[in-house]
Simulated assay, not measured.
Amino acid sequence: MASLRKFYNLRANSILESVIALSIISVCLYFAVMIFAAVFTPRTSAKFYNTQNKVNELFFLAQLRNDSLASENQNSNLLIEEENINEGLKKVSVQYKDSAAFQFDKTFYIQTNE
């Protein structure tokens, strides 16, 4: 019995250890939440990449002068602007707004043979 009392001595050290452990756990949870918030942003969502791929597709269709792009130009969510920067360089800006009203702008620079 005497040896059991020696191990069952509850002092302030165990409370201090508990507070330190809870502090360490809370700091780890804070960093986990911060990393989670940094990784899962709107720019890493599947919808962002889907819209980006749609803009790239529209740009390449505009370069091919495909007839299917003419029907896309009737859409008010799509705006394609071409601007000649200098003699051999042309700037093409594509603005596309998806169904969630997320506007994606992308600029392409094309070297011309003029």
Rank of each mutant, 00 (worst) to 15 (best):
M1S: 09
S3V: 14
A12T: 10
A12N: 12
A12E: 00
N13A: 13
L16W: 09
I20G: 05
V27N: 09
C28P: 04
A32Q: 12
A38K: 07
V39C: 09
T41G: 05
P42D: 04
P42Q: 02
R43N: 15
R43L: 12
T44W: 07
T44S: 15
N50R: 09
N50W: 03
T51V: 03
Q52V: 07
N53L: 12
V55L: 02
V55R: 02
V55A: 02
N56V: 05
E57Q: 05
L58D: 01
F59Y: 01
F60G: 00
L61M: 08
A62W: 08
A62H: 13
Q63V: 07
Q63P: 00
L64R: 11
L64Y: 00
R65D: 07
S68V: 05
L69G: 02
S71T: 13
E72F: 11
Q74P: 00
Q74A: 13
S76V: 11
I80Y: 03
E81F: 00
E83Q: 05
E83M: 01
E83L: 03
N84K: 12
N84E: 11
N86E: 12
E87D: 10
G88C: 06
G88I: 13
K91A: 08
V92P: 01
V92Q: 03
V92K: 03
S93F: 06
Q95D: 13
S99E: 15
F102K: 13
F104S: 06
F108K: 07
I110C: 08
I110L: 12
N113I: 03
E114L: 09
